[in-house]
Simulated scan of single mutants.
Amino acid sequence: MVGLVAMADDAQTDLPADPSAPWLELAPHYERARAREDSLDRLVEWPAQRHLLGDITGCSVLDVGCGNGGKLAELVGDGATASVGVDLSGNFLNDPLPGLEFIRGDLSELDSLPGLAGRRFDRILFLQSFGYAKDPVRTLQAARAMLADDGFILLTRTQPIRYAVERSEQNGTSLGEEYFSTAPFSYLSGWNDQITLTKRAYTISDLLNEFGAAGLWVETALEPQLPEDARLRYPHKQAWMNKYLGILIFKLRPLPSQ
């Protein structure tokens, strides 16, 4: 469980100029945590994401906020082609596979990254990275413009109720108060207890409205849970999921009129 950092005055409620900046230092710590046998990314998130992506043979993939690029490399190994990973940290895999390239860049500037100009992709991924976009609608619009015919966006976000539960415990308030709070909040990353992350508070309706404003509709939504065998092997992870719910996964397509 991560600990929250309470914000004592109005100045602290403002988002930092670049809320994604801590990832420059945090990225390798996250990758080590994700590789653990009991990582919820390995047990829940990636299997569900991979299921929704379907057969990617011959598909081009853009992974926005790709971390070290490990997931994208797996997709290339499964048959994806002409695929690109973008991440602010630049902490990429060495010797990428043929058909895979990496670009160091800010996901908030997708529409101005030279390495992406004029390119189209069959699948565009925002795997827990979307929350760091400075202008979420602009970022999604830029991604939509890069979709190939019949392409789609796969986007995952932490279930916002998780953050509401944590804030209500920390602040001695109710779940409803914190779920509907509009104040940004800061918390220790959990992968390195010296690094604090700051995010905008959001609700499920906020996400749906951002998708619509960007000209996208939800074809599929999932709230994946631990499979039965993992529940038995890792009861501490099931206890965490029972309290904090996990993640939301959305398969997004362009609205026909857009």
Rank of each mutant, 00 (worst) to 15 (best):
T196Y: 01
S168T: 05
R167S: 10
K251F: 03
L232T: 15
S168V: 07
L147T: 01
T196W: 03
R253P: 00
V165Q: 12
F250P: 03
L175G: 06
L188P: 02
R253Y: 04
K251M: 10
G176M: 10
L255I: 08
D206Y: 05
H236I: 13
I249R: 01
L154H: 02
L255K: 07
Y163Q: 11
Y187Q: 10
F185C: 07
L232P: 00
T203R: 05
P160K: 01
A164Y: 05
E223Q: 13
P254C: 09
L222S: 02
S189T: 08
P256C: 09
S189V: 09
R253G: 03
Y202Q: 09
L208N: 05
A214L: 00
I195S: 06
P184T: 14
Q170I: 08
T182Q: 13
A148Y: 08
L252W: 07
L154Y: 02
D149I: 11
Q159E: 13
L155T: 04
G212H: 14
Y202A: 04
S186H: 02
D150V: 00
Q159K: 09
L222A: 04
E210I: 01
A214P: 14
A214R: 01
L154F: 02
I195V: 11
F250H: 05
T198D: 04
D229H: 04
E166D: 10
V218S: 00
